[in-house]
């Protein structure tokens, strides 16, 4: 069966093109293609994240922003390409990665308290079959405190507002004590108080030398909240410091309709791969 990702047919000679990544780059993505039901959603993405920056992923709906994060973390299968963290494969870097999933991705009517959720960030440290010790509870409470939710620790999660739920997820990521954080739409549908709290946390993380990569929707706040930006529409249109990359022209290219042919090609790839004849 032929691999129908756009890069699978690279000839051996082309592999030599692969740039050397610096080991201090927290994330290096090389030629990553991700397809859902064989339809490419991300196409041949190359990206090197600079360390110690707050990085926004920006792009229109269906541009593959969440998929970029999920592809990096191995949550969706990659059709091709490599992802490395500090020059090492995913398996060796796991404990240094933090993750804030989309709020809608879980059932909030789940019988756990805010503190229980935050403690999940420590589970891997605690290990198989062992209960959560007081030490880890305290660390989780500290994380909740940092997002301003210490007094709601015992509250059942369905009784929290949307913004508070988002802050619980953020606290859970903080409890992981990671070095590189992936956040999937942390600002989606939150109240002003939460937005402020999240921004504060992001700046604290940067001050502590961490790197954050977050899917972001609100173009207006990009320059205020973030240092770097990745403009994404099925492929990386541009990436780099906000001042250089976040230009009218790049945005127009990201959001404009000039890439419709690429989307059409993706459809054709999907059809061909699923064995249906092209119309």
């Amino acid at each position: 069966m032929p691999e129908l990702s756009p890069t699978a047919a690279r000839r051996p000679t082309n592999l030599a093109e692969r740039p050397e990544h610096s080991p201090d780059s927290p994330l290096s993505v090389h030629a990553m293609t991700v397809a859902y039901h064989r339809k490419p959603v991300l196409w041949d993405v190359d990206y090197d994240a600079p360390p110690n920056r707050l990085i926004a992923i920006v792009g229109p709906n269906g541009a593959g922003k969440s998929t970029l994060i999920k592809g990096c973390l191995g949550l969706v299968p990659r059709s091709s390409g490599q992802v490395e963290f500090w020059g090492r494969p995913h398996g060796e870097a796991r404990s240094r990665l933090g993750y804030v999933p989309q709020r809608e991705s879980v059932d909030w009517d789940f019988p756990v308290s805010a503190l229980d959720v935050v403690c999940m960030g420590r589970y891997r440290r605690i290990g198989w079959c062992r209960p959560v010790s007081r030490k880890h509870k305290r660390a989780s409470l500290d994380a909740l405190d940092r997002v301003g939710m210490a007094d709601l620790a015992k509250r059942q999660i369905s009784q929290l507002s949307g913004g508070q739920q988002q802050r619980v997820f953020l606290a859970r990521a903080l409890a992981q004590e990671a070095e590189l954080y992936f956040m999937d739409e942390p600002f989606a549908g939150v109240d002003a108080a939460t937005e402020r709290a999240i921004v504060d946390v992001l700046r604290d993380l940067r001050a502590a030398g961490r790197t954050v990569i977050a899917v972001h929707h609100d173009l207006q706040t990009v320059p205020e909240y973030f240092d770097d930006v990745i403009l994404l529409n099925m492929r990386v249109v541009a990436s780099g410091p906000v001042a250089e990359v976040f230009t009218q022209e790049n945005l127009h290219q990201t959001y404009g309709g000039r890439l419709t042919l690429l989307a059409e090609a993706a459809e054709a790839v999907a059809r061909a791969a699923s064995g249906e004849r092209a119309p």
């Binding site: 756009p6 690279r10 082309n14 093109e17 190359d46």
Partner: peptide, 19 residues
């Protein structure tokens, strides 16, 4: 139109030329 760098397009085109 898609802003891909020239040294990079060959492989992608390689797949698309069949479609």
């Amino acid at each position: 139109q898609a802003g891909v760098s020239p040294d990079h397009v060959h492989e992608t085109a390689e797949r698309l030329e069949h479609l």
